[in-house]
């Protein structure tokens, strides 16, 4: 068994979290709250020790970069959230952030999420050369093309799903189900991975059953 008190603390907290699997209990609650508190405390301490000295003291005051006081002042308007009568002032930084964020992200988002994805749906095996060999690439491209068209027709509600539209929509729902299945399978793997990592920690670092 480990003689490191930190390993023991980690192991005890891991078991405290696992105790929820039996039923809700105060030990689990304590560990859960401790985790949340630690995460927030770490964030506050990190900002206080590293970000504020670097971004505010060094970049503005030591560098005499006085123009940066303007964004600092705008950012500080967020604190008016705690002054009910003047809380509307925090809308200013929110508006600026939203405006700048949207303006900045719109063109590249359209290119990355819309245009490139439409191109990816088209029959263009050359785009797959780095990942697939050309024959597999063509097959995958065809499958993607059929899948996208059929799935979109399933979500086409302006006409009743009759005739070819019905067939296409029914094929589409199969593609959707396969997608859900893949997502669920990956989710199971992710959750099992988390369990395995903790059990590995308990068996390896704590009780030294595995070396």
């Amino acid at each position: 068994m480990s003689t490191d008190p930190w390993i023991w603390l980690s192991a005890i907290l891991t078991l405290a979290i696992f105790s929820f699997l039996y039923k809700e209990n105060p030990v689990y609650r304590f560990a859960e709250h401790l985790f949340t508190g630690m995460a927030v405390g770490y964030m506050v301490a990190y900002y206080w020790q590293r970000i504020i000295p670097d971004y505010i003291i060094r970049n503005i005051f030591l560098a005499h970069n006085w123009v940066m006081l303007i964004p600092l002042a705008i950012g500080l308007l967020y604190l008016f959230r705690f002054v009910p009568k003047l809380s509307w002032l925090m809308l200013i930084p929110i508006a600026i952030l939203l405006g700048v964020g949207q303006g900045m992200s719109l063109p590249p988002t359209i290119e990355a999420d819309v245009i490139k994805q439409i191109q990816g749906t088209m029959l263009h095996p050359g785009m797959l050369n780095d990942i697939f060999d050309p024959y597999q690439g063509l097959l995958v491209s065809l499958l993607v093309l059929v899948g996208v068209i059929c799935t979109i027709t399933y979500f086409f509600f302006s006409r009743e799903h009759k005739g070819p539209l019905r067939i296409s929509a029914q094929i589409g729902i199969w593609f959707v189900m396969v997608g859900f299945g893949a997502s669920f399978g990956y989710t199971v793997m992710a959750r099992v991975s988390l369990l395995i990592a903790r059990i590995q920690f308990l068996l390896t670092d704590w009780i030294h059953l595995i070396r």
């Binding site: 990355a112 490139k116 994805q117 191109q119 990816g120 785009m127 797959l128 780095d130 990942i131 995958v140 993607v144 997608g179 893949a182 997502s183 990956y186 989710t187 793997m189 992710a190 991975s193 395995i196």
Partner: peptide, 26 residues
Amino acid sequence: VTAVMAPDYYPFLQTGQLLGQLSGMK
């Protein structure tokens, strides 16, 4: 990416926007 996220980013892999992807523990 974590396995939960992996299916969301396969389209980016297929278009060449990602040059590779490691999916979860596997």
